[in-house]
Design a protein around this nucleic acid. Structure first.
Lengths: 217, 217
DNA sequence: ACCTGAACACCGTTCAAGT
DNA sequence: ACCTGAACACCGTTCAAGT
């Protein structure tokens, strides 16, 4: 699938098109939130947007592109939120910063539960093109920036892998919780924090079969 | 969706049926491994199994049930593998045991990469009935048993949540890696081990805004 | 009794016809 | 020029007809 296949057909300079794309995306969100993934069909989205299917396909080359646009929006919002937290917590302790990040992960998922879950699942299913890959990279970079601030305290060599791992861990724990219950389990945020802190602070010697193995923990 | 909808139609006592179910499942695995999720259609599976679509539907009430049967198999194998590791590592250190569990997570995913990935994705998409939920519970229980052995060393109150979290973390890290590359990243197993160890060993005080915060790490 | 595969319902996508 | 919605291709599922 080529990159162009995932993008809206029309240039955003044309104001009418822009508004139409917007209306379609809003309709899509409505369908996903109110009626679920099963009802998320091209015809239904067009219907809710008040246009014909044919028109929908004038703005999006295929349904995948429509889904990708929704995911792109969510991801863009998340990038900004993560960057904001990193910047806001520059002067706080590692614990405080991670705590804010854990809270962000939870609130991002539970802010719009139906939508977030549906997009999670779609995101996995589809090969998502480079643009969305870029958002992930941006989030990883922001996280890496956070780790750099606390570098002195971290017994880690590969901060890039660490940043990626932390994001995967937080996301998986929150999604697993969201798949089972709503609202969030009371201890969720705390458990996420534990996972992140533990990953970062575990002394390397603690799992390097050495005689000093139990000195730290 | 009722539980009965996810099970094969015929009793396993009828040997011919049993063999047929087996043949269909093998065909399904073949299609998934060799041709991918996109080619995994009822017609294609029937074709590879050498029967008509109609016959396929005599053994499985719907395609979902066929997928569920494959997932059930994988999960059953995984339950046994986890139980075996837990039992084999009864007398070893926490590190050694977790290390074996991390290795199991990686090898389970990479043992049959195409199949495992495809089933991962399907497993998320579908509401999977109680039987598969039971496998997850069994794995969680085995993990809980493992934690009980090392209880004295763990600064944790809720071992059930911990067991569930460890499984989610290991799985998410391995799947994220598998989605991006093949074979596994060289450091993957070690990173999974770090995540598990860190979660378990992090002193509770380390993230409870107390003045003793930095005493341990 | 059991199997077959054309037929049906439904979804993504297109395009001839209408404005 | 732009929109519409019937038509087409394809997939899951069924069932009349064949053995």
């Amino acid at each position: 699938m080529k990159r162009s296949q995932l993008e809206p057909r029309k240039s955003p300079r044309q104001t009418r098109s822009e508004a139409m794309v917007e209306a379609i995306l809003e309709a899509a969100v409505r369908v996903l939130e109110r009626e679920g993934l099963a009802a998320f069909t091209a015809t239904r989205v067009a219907e809710v947007a008040g246009i014909s299917v044919g028109s929908l396909y004038q703005y999006f080359p295929n349904k995948h592109a429509l889904t990708a646009a929704l995911i792109r929006r969510e991801q863009a919002a998340l990038v900004q939120a993560v960057e904001a937290v990193v910047s806001d917590t520059k002067d706080l302790s590692l614990e405080a910063g991670l705590s804010r990040l854990a809270a962000l992960a939870v609130s991002h998922q539970y802010g719009r539960p139906g939508l977030a879950s549906a997009l999670d699942h779609e995101e996995r299913r589809l090969p998502l093109g480079k643009e969305i890959e870029a958002f992930r990279t941006a989030i990883r970079k922001a996280m890496r920036g956070f780790l750099d601030i606390h570098q002195a305290r971290l017994p880690l060599q590969d901060l890039d892998s660490a940043a990626a791992d932390l994001l995967i861990i937080a996301r998986a724990m929150v999604e697993a919780d969201a798949d089972r219950r709503e609202p969030a389990a009371p201890g969720l945020e705390r458990r996420v924090l534990r996972a992140l802190m533990g990953y970062l602070l575990l002394p390397t010697e603690a799992f390097t079969r050495s005689r000093s193995s139990r000195r730290f923990l």
